[in-house]
Amino acid sequence: MAGNDVLLSIKDLHVTVEGIEVVKGVSLEMKKGEKHAIMGPNGSGKSSMANALSGHPAYEITSGEVLLDGENLLEMDASERSIAGLFLAFQYPLAVPGVTVTNFLRSAIKAHRGDDPSVLRSFRKEMKEAFKLLEMDEVFASRYVNDGFSGGEKKRFEILQLAMLQPKVAILDETDSGLDIDALKVVSKGVNAAHTDDNAVLLVTHYQRILNYVSPDHVHVMMNGNLVRSGGPELAHQLEEKGYDWIKAELVA
C-alpha cells in the first residue's frame, strides 16, 4: 500500500509571477512521516513555489499537477487548500491590526472544524497548550495578530498555528531566519511536536542551521527554479561546508 502513503505529490510544476517563470518544472513526492528540506540561495524560487502551492493569487501555476493526499490541489482556492490539510508558515507573516490572536485562531479553527459548542469549548484549552509549547506569554492572546510582534514572535506564532491546525502537509518558509539560537530551539521543538507518522513537513531554508534541530530525511537543492540535486541529510552538511557555489560549479561542468 506504499502509494497511499504519499501525502504530497508535485509533478512538473511551473510557476509564473509578474509574467516571469520562477519555478521551472519541479517534481517532488513526500510520504507520511517524512521531513524534507529544500535549500537554495536567495531568489532561487523557494518562496514562489511555497506560495503557489498554498494558492497565493499572484503566483500563477502555468502547468503541472499537485495532489494532496490524492486530492487535486490546483482546483482549490487558498482557504480550501488549508481545509484539505495544507499549511504554510509564512516567511513574512502579515499583521492584521485590530484582530486579536484569539479571534483569529478561533476563526481558523471554526473554518476547519465547524462551530459546534464542543469545538469552541476545547479551543481555549488547545490554545493555552499551544502557547505553552511555543513558550509564548498568554498576553499574546489579546494582542493584535503580528501587530508589533518582533521577528521571532512572528515565527513562533506561525508554528503555534501549525500546532493547532494539525495539517497533513506543512511547508515552513524560512521559519529559521532571523531567530536567535534560543528561539530557534523553541520553534524547532514546536515543529517536532507537530510532526507525526501521519503527516509531512517541508522545510524551506537558506541555511542548514535549523536542520540540526529538525532533522530531515531528504534534502533537495533548488537553484534557478529547479531542484538540481536531492539526497539525504549529508547533502545539507556538504552545502554547509562548500556553499552553493560548489553545486553551481558542478552543474556547469
Binding site: G55, H56, D77, S79, R81, L88, L94, S107, A111
Partner: peptide
C-alpha cells in the same frame, strides 16, 4: 491581497 491571503491560508473564506 496579501492580508486576505494570509487569512485564507488558515482556512478562512
Amino acid at each position: 491581497d496579501e492580508q486576505i491571503f494570509y487569512l485564507m491560508a488558515r482556512g478562512i473564506t
